[in-house]
């Protein structure tokens, strides 16, 4: 049940904190962990709507995330081959533990707090340079991106060998015309995961997404049943396989 709202850290404060964390990370993750907390003097929850998460609930979120991805949060560079699994498990853990109202998750400042106050060591494990777009709570923020992907795709992120890769996910979800049709997104993801053709899967995925995206112009795919979507995707898949 999504019912909680979390403290929001203004961007200006987040930018300064991110800089401090980047500096601390040069001394190792233990130095970063000294910044970890369940509150920040400049952060506050939205005054209307939702139940503010208590400090103990906020700390439980940290524990839940570390239970799922903590094995990698050890100061070493996260191997590239592990990144999709790390992101999927992070997204799952956040989705389960945060119980956040989607409207609160839509605000950058919420993710500023979660990333830089509650889970800075996790963020730095995934993106060691913690650039602004990964640190601050925009669409490419390390935690927001993982939460959002799980929100849309769920367990599909844990399926397949290999798991859906970064290019495949970006192509699928960062196109708003397609991304809000969740049945379509899931059907496309399943098709990509099941691809067994000769081409590189990510190339096939790119072509498939593009062909389907063009169909969203004259066709309102929101009216399609799952069988209709399967038929359409099969047609487009055959054309680009």
């Amino acid at each position: 049940m999504s019912s909680r709202v979390y403290p929001r850290l203004p961007n200006a404060d987040a930018r300064l904190l991110a800089e401090e964390l980047r500096e601390a990370s040069l001394s190792g993750l233990d130095a970063v962990r000294e910044f970890v907390g369940a509150s920040h003097p400049r952060a506050a929850t939205v005054p209307t709507g939702g139940r503010p998460a208590s400090e103990s609930e906020i700390l439980q979120v940290r524990q839940a995330v570390l239970a799922d991805v903590g094995e990698w949060v050890d100061g070493r560079v996260l191997p590239r081959r592990v990144q999709p699994e790390f992101d999927a498990r992070l997204g799952n853990a956040l989705h389960m533990a945060l119980e956040i109202i989607p409207a609160d998750a839509a605000h950058e400042e919420t993710w500023n707090f979660l990333t830089l106050v509650l889970l800075p060591d996790v963020a730095l494990t995934r993106f060691p340079t913690l650039t602004e777009e990964r640190a601050l709570g925009g669409q490419r923020n390390v935690l927001r991106r993982a939460w959002s992907r799980w929100d849309i795709l769920g367990e599909l992120l844990m399926r397949g060998s290999p798991l859906l890769g970064e290019d495949e996910l970006v192509g699928l979800l960062e196109r708003t015309a397609v991304a809000r049709n969740r049945s379509l997104v899931k059907a496309l993801a399943e098709r990509v995961l099941n691809y067994q053709g000769a081409r590189a899967r990510s190339e096939y995925a790119r072509d498939l997404y593009k062909r389907v995206r063009y169909r969203t112009g004259p066709l309102m795919l929101d009216l399609y049943s799952s069988a209709d979507l399967d038929d359409l995707i099969t047609l487009e898949s055959n054309a680009c396989a």
């Binding site: 998750a105 839509a106 929100d151 929101d222 009216l223």
Partner: peptide, 19 residues
């Protein structure tokens, strides 16, 4: 033929439909 009302929210990335 269907009449479809749509509400798109860019921030939450959700679409609501009424058909």
């Amino acid at each position: 033929v269907r009449l479809v009302a749509t509400v798109d929210c860019p921030s939450t990335n959700q679409r609501h439909l009424s058909i």
